[in-house]
Nucleic acid binder design. Sequence first.
DNA 1: CGTTCTATTGACATCATTCAACGCCGGTGG
DNA 2: CCACCGGCGTTGAATGATGTCAATAGAACG
Lengths: 258, 258
Amino acid sequence: MISYLLQQSNTCKNCSLSSACLGSVDQTSLRPGVKSHRIYHKGDSLFVEGTVFNALFILRSGSAKSSISSTSGDEQITGFYHPGDLMGLDGFDRGTHVHRLNFLETSSVCCIGLGELDNAMGESANLRHKLLQSMSHALIEEHALLLSLGKMTSEQRLVKFLLDISARFEKRGLSGKEYILSMSRIDIANYLGMAIETISRLLTKMHTLGVIAVDHRKITLLDGEKLQACLAGESDMSAVVALSSKANRAPIRQSLSA
Amino acid sequence: MISYLLQQSNTCKNCSLSSACLGSVDQTSLRPGVKSHRIYHKGDSLFVEGTVFNALFILRSGSAKSSISSTSGDEQITGFYHPGDLMGLDGFDRGTHVHRLNFLETSSVCCIGLGELDNAMGESANLRHKLLQSMSHALIEEHALLLSLGKMTSEQRLVKFLLDISARFEKRGLSGKEYILSMSRIDIANYLGMAIETISRLLTKMHTLGVIAVDHRKITLLDGEKLQACLAGESDMSAVVALSSKANRAPIRQSLSA
DNA sequence: CGTTCTATTGACATCATTCAACGCCGGTGG
DNA sequence: CCACCGGCGTTGAATGATGTCAATAGAACG
């Protein structure tokens, strides 16, 4: 089931055409480096802790998660990947991967050999910039996520998560208002650092309040403004909804809301 | 007070000799690029959100913090910097800095112009690797910190923080067992995402338990093993200490500890 | 069709924040 | 020299959010 090594069966002709691959890295700079793509299935590992780092990967279709195992043995999910995302950047540090990468569903992956990547970087300043940019971007995202874990309530973290997913769907030209989560509640809870019961409670709460609709893994964002308000404001979703309905009445007769 | 622009008064001759600069980046690859260093004082900004990204920086002496301001206006400290650390990597993403960097005390900084860095990268594969490695390392550290924020108790977070600082001091050849914190409790609380009261309480608790000594900003690690045990184990410091004393008595006479 | 994984819901316990008061220290001005 | 003041740090009491334990039900998979 687990495939540590990449098969180099097909040249990746679809890849240089597919818009999915244009996500994080300029494809034209990479074309000589792109050599292979491969299909993985749910639960498969692309690499694990200690796997030799000899290639970068671009996710073409499907979804994946990366995780790191702490000293005490339990795992922490560090990120989710969607088509167009660059995977495997953690390997630059020590030459072996620090993270483990597992697929959440059947997925297709592009492989960029390290040697070719390096050659290309020596020649193309553009590629250098793109790669550094991509890593810098990941770093900033991390910091933002860190901020969210430290300073936000569980509700805000979950809202942020839903909106992040939404933005990533829209970036790919899909609907950001209605989408299917590719990961389980367990994964979400692990990623956000909360109990799955809390996830469940918050989802039903927001569903009840009418700001989102939840049908198993299908999420529908019904009121983007209230979701944003929950992120920006200091109070919780109930307060936002209450405030909003009051604001709707206010323009008619100020004194009523006193 | 605030100095956005770098002064290019002195060539950085000390820098190529100083061991402090050998921290994250191979100095020999950079020597042609290193042009200037400069002194900053407590509270000064090296760059702020939006500052044009035109150089990387290496901290030679002193200390600094980087922070990001959330949409709601309040700030989140994203990292602390010690001599040898590379600063400003966040600028690669958009060409302007996303973070703000402030000094915690009088500090000396090396500046590496972007243009020269790029030229050097085109020539030196070694430099390319070092830079990518440095960023990958930062990314991994972020993920580890993220893990700590999500899954650990406040006590464990604080212990991890103290041990991290300790490790960084030792890496610089200084004592990791006894050091002066360069940041206030307020900054620590902000960084770890907890209330300053909690920081204070936990420090005194651990002081009382005898695993560390706290004298204002001077920290002394008295029992590294217990600190590590607190990180690895699932219980809190009181339990670790209780367990340890029981283990010490046990070999003598089992029945006594009942 | 049953076993297992995933998800929801309730009751309870607990850790951490919040609010509040106070002491310490360094600076500043009378 | 002393009094005042603001920033930092400590400590106590009360509130609240989130995790834990437990029971149940639905979905997925063979």
